[in-house]
Each structure stands twice: as C-alpha cells, then as structure tokens.
Amino acid sequence: MRRFEGRVALVTAGAQGIGAAVARRLADEGASVVVTDLQEEKVAEVAAGIGEQALGLRLDVTSRDDVDAAVAAAVDRFGRLDVVVNNAGGCIVTSVPEDATAEEWHRQLDLTLVGASRCIQAALPHLVRTRGNVVTISSVNGLAAFGNIEYSAAKAGQIAMTVNYAARYGELGVRFNIVAPGTIRTPNWDNQPGTLERFSKMYPLGRVGEPEDIAAAVAFLASDDAAWITGHTLPVEGGVLTGPRGEMNLTPSGSFKKEYPGL
C-alpha cells in the first residue's frame, strides 16, 4: 500500500522501539518522514536506514523552541506537514505514589502530556492547511489500573486532550486519535530479563506486542482509511483490557481443551 504518497509525517521519540517502527511503516507506505529524538546518533541511523525521504533531528519535547524548530525543519525540507505522531514520553517517576513529589509530577506531566500538546500547537497551522491529523501514543495505563499512577495520569490526560482537540478542530478537517498499547517489546525492557515472558502470560493472545503492531495501527488511523474517525482511542493490547490472565479465571476450561488439544 502507498497510502501516504506525497505526504509528510513527523514522529517523536523515533530512535528505537515504537517510534522507529512507525517511521519505517509510514515511509514504506510512501511518506516523507521527519524522525526526531533526544538520541541524535540513533535517530540519524533510523533516518539513514529509511533513505532520502527521511530526515533525522534531535528534539526535546519539553522545549517549545526545539518543537518549533523541528516543525519548521519538516516544512522547509519537504514543503508541508500532514501527520504528527506523538510518541515521546515515558515513566520517569520512581517514587511510590505516596512519596512522589510535586517536582516529579511536573516532570512526568511535562514530558508525556505537555510535550504532546507542544507538538500539536506547533504543527496545527500546517495541519489545517493539509487537513492533516495527529496520532498520539498513549497506553492502556490511561484506560485501566495497571500501576505507575503519575505515568497513568499523564496518559489519561493525553486521551482527554485528544478528544477535546478533535471536537474543536474537526470542522477544519483536522483529525486527532489515540493508539493505546499494552506491553510492547522495546529496548526499555532489555535490562529486565524474563519480565516480558512473565507479562505475556497475562495476555489472552499469549504474547506481548511488537513495535510493528503499534505501527500498523498508527498507519491506519493516520491514513484516509480512517477519514471519518476522530477523537477515538484504539487499544492495541492483546486483549489485556478484557481481564489479565493470572488475575482472573479466564483460562479455557478442560472440556474446551479436549476439543482443541493444541491449547
């Protein structure tokens, strides 16, 4: 498919994991892609791997000057901006909730929630011209209780922000949607051996997600296939929101296993 032929996308936190997979997927479907991240060398490698249709830039989403410069660079290089993928964020509060300081709360919200808002604000005039759209990577943490309270609050804030942007700018043809991943196999888990295997048992589909699972969902929502979808959250989470295995009795019964011996 070439759903993004002639279009330009900006992806934040694109040096690895979900962001890199999204950048590659959009480029594979014809987009010119501006890949941004704090990790300059890694983001340059991702852009080089995509080819001439990609530009790698350093971007700190907690800096409005950085965000404005990245959006301006995208338009200067490729002439327009059609899609923004807000992927930057992370769980940066290490305190237990009762001990989290106001400073820690501010840092978490500034990175994950306000950072996404900065990118939307800077890109919005260009998205109005192209009738473009924004896809923000939130989390199942914004939809249900999975711990990490400060991070979860920031992710829930992204969802509320997106609904309001969708209502406000729909008449101008700009769409805003959310992808809410479950656990995804990214380099963030590399120093926690065995964790993903343990988590996979919680998922009804029997595995954690891959970055490409999220990239496919982003490509759908950013494309004209989703032209009449705005203000929505698409969970991509292997069924964990139906009730995590190991915490609820959702294992198929013995009689079901007899009919399907492969289970």
Rank of each mutant, 00 (worst) to 15 (best):
A21D: 12
V43I: 08
K42C: 01
V33T: 10
G115C: 11
R64V: 13
A9Q: 04
A70H: 06
A123N: 06
G14D: 00
V22S: 02
L59E: 11
I50S: 01
A48I: 02
F78K: 04
R64P: 00
D76L: 11
I50H: 06
L55G: 03
W105R: 09
V43Y: 03
V75G: 12
E104A: 14
A23N: 03
V83R: 03
S117Q: 13
S32K: 12
V75W: 11
L59N: 14
A102K: 13
D110F: 05
E98G: 00
L38I: 14
G49V: 10
R58C: 04
R25Y: 06
R64D: 12
A88M: 13
L113R: 09
R24W: 09
A31H: 10
E45Y: 00
L109M: 14
R77C: 10
G17Q: 05
T12Q: 02
A23L: 07
A54Q: 08
R58W: 03
V8W: 07
F78N: 10
R58Y: 05
E103K: 14
Q53E: 12
L111Y: 04
A69G: 06
A73E: 14
A31R: 07
G56N: 09
G56D: 08
E40N: 09
V67Y: 00
R80L: 10
V11F: 01
V35M: 08
A47N: 08
G89N: 14
S117A: 14
S63W: 13
V11N: 02
